Amino acid sequence: MAAHAMEHLGAGMSPQLVVALDFPQAKPAMAVAQQLVGVTSWVKVGLELYLAAGARIVADLKGLGFRVFVDLKFLDIPNTVAGAVRQVCGSGADMLTVHALGGKAMVQAALAARDAAGTKTSVVAVTLLTHLTSEDLPWAAASLPELAGDLACRAHAWGADGVVCSGQEAGIIRAATSPDFLLVTPGLRRPEDHVGDQARICTPLAAARAGSNFLVMGRPITGATDPAAAARQILASVLIPGGTS
Results as ranks from 00 to 15, higher is better:
13 M>D: 15
50 Y>T: 09
9 L>C: 11
20 A>M: 06
51 L>C: 09
65 G>F: 02
37 V>Y: 09
59 A>Y: 01
19 V>F: 11
13 M>T: 06
34 Q>I: 00
29 A>Y: 06
41 S>D: 15
33 A>M: 08
47 L>Y: 04
62 K>H: 08
32 V>T: 14
63 G>M: 04
29 A>Q: 07
12 G>I: 13
21 L>D: 10
11 A>F: 14
22 D>Q: 08
11 A>L: 15
36 L>T: 02
37 V>Q: 15
58 V>M: 05
40 T>A: 12
65 G>V: 01
33 A>H: 07
10 G>F: 05
55 A>I: 00
13 M>F: 13
34 Q>Y: 01
61 L>G: 02
34 Q>A: 13
46 G>I: 00
48 E>Q: 15
23 F>S: 02
64 L>W: 11
60 D>C: 00
24 P>V: 03
39 V>D: 03
20 A>L: 07
41 S>C: 02
41 S>L: 11
46 G>W: 03
52 A>K: 07
40 T>Q: 05
12 G>K: 08
43 V>Q: 11
62 K>E: 09
60 D>Q: 14
36 L>F: 10
41 S>M: 05
42 W>F: 14
41 S>K: 15
28 P>S: 06
34 Q>N: 06
20 A>G: 04
45 V>D: 02
18 V>T: 09
7 E>T: 10
52 A>L: 02
59 A>P: 02
29 A>N: 05
52 A>C: 05
62 K>Y: 06
13 M>Y: 12
64 L>D: 08
17 L>T: 07
8 H>T: 09
55 A>K: 07
17 L>P: 13
37 V>M: 08
12 G>R: 07
58 V>H: 07
11 A>G: 04
11 A>S: 13
29 A>P: 02
51 L>E: 10
16 Q>D: 12
18 V>C: 13
58 V>N: 05
16 Q>T: 09
16 Q>I: 13
31 A>R: 11
58 V>R: 03
13 M>H: 14
26 A>L: 09
61 L>I: 01
52 A>D: 12
59 A>G: 15
65 G>H: 06
41 S>I: 00
39 V>F: 11
47 L>A: 00
63 G>I: 00
25 Q>C: 03
36 L>V: 03
8 H>Q: 13
50 Y>P: 11
18 V>F: 14
46 G>F: 04
47 L>P: 11
62 K>Q: 14
17 L>A: 09
20 A>Q: 02
33 A>S: 09
26 A>P: 12
19 V>H: 04
8 H>E: 05
64 L>V: 01
59 A>M: 08
57 I>L: 13
61 L>Y: 09
33 A>C: 10
7 E>D: 14
35 Q>W: 04
61 L>A: 02
26 A>F: 10
13 M>V: 01
51 L>A: 01
15 P>A: 10
60 D>L: 06
25 Q>D: 14
65 G>R: 06
37 V>K: 14
56 R>N: 12
57 I>Y: 12
7 E>K: 14
40 T>H: 06
51 L>V: 00
29 A>L: 05
41 S>Q: 15
23 F>M: 11
26 A>I: 09
32 V>R: 02
60 D>M: 08
41 S>G: 06
35 Q>S: 12
29 A>H: 05
37 V>S: 03
39 V>R: 01
12 G>Q: 08
53 A>P: 11
18 V>K: 12
34 Q>E: 15
54 G>R: 10
61 L>E: 04
48 E>H: 08
41 S>T: 08
46 G>C: 03
49 L>F: 07
40 T>C: 15
29 A>C: 07
